[in-house]
């Protein structure tokens, strides 16, 4: 009960973006408030595992820690046509089933090598569902990463107030 209260009061930070938690947190549903899509907690967790495989934790945070999957989910929910959203969910579901079929395990339980090989296949997939889903998933994960607060304040610094312009800034040519 206390945990729920805390969730209600605290925004979920995804990349740096403050997301509203789903208010009446139904058992097994997505943790963020969605306007259009119906995503289960399992599907959300699968997205987290896919995002983490795309951008893993190294000596810097990975997708899971930066909650890039929630950023991706928010973007798909708000910025895509209904048809694309449906294709996305279909692709996600098919991917989930595929992991079970191939390895009798959920994607998250697979070894890194197995996860990477599954995504490598998606990179070249011609199925509209799979490629449609994966293309968005990867693109949004990368967008979320490059525009995350962590990256913009630690790795590729975004300057809000540059206060200068140099049109002949010397750089290495190689």
């Amino acid at each position: 009960m206390e945990r729920r209260l805390v969730i209600k009061q605290v925004l979920i930070m995804a990349g740096g973006l403050a997301l509203l938690p789903s208010c009446l947190r139904e058992q097994g549903k997505s943790t963020i408030l969605l306007k259009n899509m119906d995503i289960s907690l399992d599907q959300e967790n699968l997205m987290a595992d896919i995002a983490e495989t795309i951008i893993p934790r190294t000596n810097t945070p990975g997708a899971k820690q930066l909650k890039l999957h929630l950023f991706a989910l928010k973007m798909v929910d708000d910025c895509y046509e209904k048809a694309d959203q449906e294709l996305f969910v279909k692709g996600l579901t098919a991917f989930q089933d595929q992991a079970q079929d191939l390895f009798s395990k959920s994607f998250g339980k697979l070894s890194l090598h197995q996860r990477e090989s599954m995504l490598a296949k998606l990179e070249n997939s011609t199925s509209p569902e799979q490629s449609g889903f994966y293309k968005i998933m990867k693109e949004k994960t990368i967008d979320g990463f490059l525009n995350s607060k962590y990256v913009m304040t630690n790795l590729i610094i975004y300057e809000l107030v540059p206060g200068r312009y140099n049109g002949y800034f010397p750089v290495k040519t190689a």
């Binding site: 740096g16 973006l17 928010k74 708000d78 910025c79 046509e81 525009n147 607060k149």
Partner: peptide, 17 residues
């Protein structure tokens, strides 16, 4: 005026609706 790119709901892109 003082927001960073990641502070916008969709990185600046207006929602489809």
């Amino acid at each position: 005026t003082n927001k960073f790119p990641y502070e916008f709901e969709h990185l600046g892109e207006p929602a489809l609706a």
